[in-house]
């Protein structure tokens, strides 16, 4: 997790709205970066920068909602706050279902914007924390031997040492030893802890 100050990325094709948002965010003490198009933003954005995205829905030649999907497919999980002059309920529900933090109608008040930004930054922060934790877990998991991974998988599925031993064709003592290694390498305090860790790793490590 980096300690960099969060940046608010503003993407709106209207220069005066962009500048006004920059002015307000600056007055509230945020760092901002302005972009006239989603294309510009994509080229300039670096995923390690913490922050959130203020995104207009309507764009010449592109659509903010489509861009949200583009970002998701590219694995960029920056929290998005939509701002639009003419949103409707289907538009808003589509955006929120796809994970947008907020769907603000122009013109919006400072408090609405601020609340949304704080929520978005919090989400970004916790996301980054989770990501960092996951990275640690992943590196620990990577240290396990293939046998230890097998044992881990069976342990968290609720089997006893005896059952694991008979399934893997090894003795109960050997199983116990492997299990101890797994607990140590994964830095797990209890079985419950180990289960939680494996859950987090589920999408990636354990197949």
């Amino acid at each position: 997790m980096s300690d960099a100050r969060p940046t608010i990325f503003v993407v709106d094709d209207d220069a005066s709205v962009r500048d006004a948002l920059c002015n307000l965010l600056e007055s509230l003490g945020f760092d901002t970066q302005l972009f006239a198009s989603t294309e510009q933003f994509r080229r300039a954005f670096q995923p390690q920068t913490p922050g959130c995205l203020l995104l207009d829905v309507r764009f010449p030649g592109a659509n903010g909602l489509d861009f949200q999907q583009v970002l998701q497919r590219a694995g960029i999980s920056i929290p998005i706050i939509f701002i639009t002059a003419h949103g409707d309920v289907p538009m808003a529900s589509r955006a929120l279902k796809a994970g947008a933090v907020e769907f603000l109608m122009k013109p919006f008040q400072k408090d609405e914007l601020l609340a949304a930004i704080e929520q978005a930054l919090e989400r970004d922060r916790s996301g980054r924390v989770a990501l960092a934790e996951l990275a640690v877990l992943q590196s620990r998991f990577d240290e396990l031997t293939p046998r230890e991974r097998e044992v881990l998988e069976l342990v968290v599925s609720g089997m006893t040492n005896k059952e694991i031993g008979s399934k893997l064709g090894i003795s109960e003592v050997t199983t116990k030893m492997h299990r101890g290694q797994v607990m140590r390498k994964m830095n797990a305090a209890s079985l419950a802890d180990l289960v939680r860790m494996s859950d987090k790793l589920q999408p990636r490590g354990l197949r």
């Binding site: 209207d14 500048d19 948002l21 307000l24 600056e26 309507r58 003419h86 122009k106 013109p107 008040q109």
Partner: peptide
Amino acid sequence: AHEISQPLTAVVTNGHACLEW
């Protein structure tokens, strides 16, 4: 609606910013 609400958004936003400053 878009043509009108864009500058209005800028007005409201700049107004809030002005108060902050």
